[in-house]
Structure formats: C-alpha cells, structure tokens
Computed example of a mutant assay.
Amino acid sequence: MGRATDRLTTLIASAVQALGYELVGVEHQSQGKHTVVRVFIDSPEGITLEDCEQASHQISGVLDVEDPIRGQYNLEVSSPGLDRPLFTPEHYTRFIGEKARLRLRHAVDGRRKVAGRIESVDGNVVRIIDDAGEVYELNVDQVEKANLIPDYDAIMQSH
C-alpha cells in the first residue's frame, strides 16, 4: 500500500469501526480523472444493504471533512462477498486451507498471476501451493490484489 492509501485506510477505519463494523480493506484506484474508492466491511451477522448505506454516509462525511482525495471520486461500500479480498497477513491466516487468486506487482518466476491453496503464513510471507504442486512464498507487499476463490460445490451442498 502506498502512503495515500494508508492514510485513506486510517481515516475510513475510524468511521467504519465507530459503526461497529470490521474494515476488511480499502482499494483506491485512480485512472485519469476517474477515482474509485472501494471499501469492504463485514460483521459477524453479515452485511446488509442498509449497513452499506450507513457506512457510506459515515465514510463520505469523514472524506468530505478530511479531503484526502484530489478531485471527484466514486465511493463504493460492500460486503467482502464470496470472493473475499485479502489485504493483510491476518486475512491469509484466517483462510489457510482455502484457495486464493493473487495478482503480483512484479513477476515471480515469470508469473504475475498465481492461484492455489493458502498453505501457511509466517509473518508477512504467505505460502501458496498451486494445482500443479508448485510452491510460492510471497511477501504480502508483493501482492497487488488477492481474492479467495469460492468453492461453489461446497456452498451448494451446504444449502
């Protein structure tokens, strides 16, 4: 994360936590004049549309006062969903044994995309084993974007 995203995350965290939600993470994307701020929130009871609206209103108020983003931006607030994003070592630890898809900032062994089972986490280093048995030990800082890969078969069997 860059310093701007760190500051943004800190500002948003206080607003989200004040409402009793967990801040899963913040994505900040600037593409020319278009800036999108995606905020993922969660709670033990799950997240409803009303929760997202309430958090969006609170976050907007904080961002309007603090003004950390130049120009206009779109704010999107949602639950993490089945393809939950992973931002911190704690997120990876929580989902050891699950499959994840990672896009790396720079190629490792000629690859920028890695998908496989989260085997272990040691500090900031995540160990991923892909379907071919290849092992990747990646620092969380090397990861540009990571999401769980939902196991739809298991989900369908549980309903």
Rank of each mutant, 00 (worst) to 15 (best):
D153E: 15
G20P: 13
G2P: 14
A115E: 15
V143T: 07
T5E: 15
E134Q: 13
V16F: 07
S78M: 09
L86F: 07
T93N: 08
A4M: 13
G32K: 04
L138P: 15
H159T: 03
V125A: 08
T93H: 12
V135M: 10
M1G: 15
G32D: 09
Q58H: 09
V143Y: 09
N74D: 14
E53D: 12
Q17D: 11
I12G: 06
P89D: 02
R117F: 06
A4C: 02
E98R: 13
I118A: 04
A100I: 09
I47Q: 07
A100D: 02
G25C: 02
S43G: 11
I96D: 00
V62P: 15
D141M: 07
H106N: 14
G97H: 04
P80R: 05
R127N: 09
L86C: 02
D64R: 03
R101E: 14
A107D: 14
T10L: 11
L148S: 10
G133D: 10
L75R: 06
V108C: 01
V108S: 07
A146K: 04
N147F: 06
A107Q: 10
V125P: 00
G81S: 12
I118H: 06
T9E: 14
D130G: 07
V108K: 12
R3W: 08
D130H: 11
A100Q: 02
G46S: 01
V135C: 09
Y21N: 00
S78R: 10
G2Y: 03
V125K: 08
D130S: 08
S30G: 14
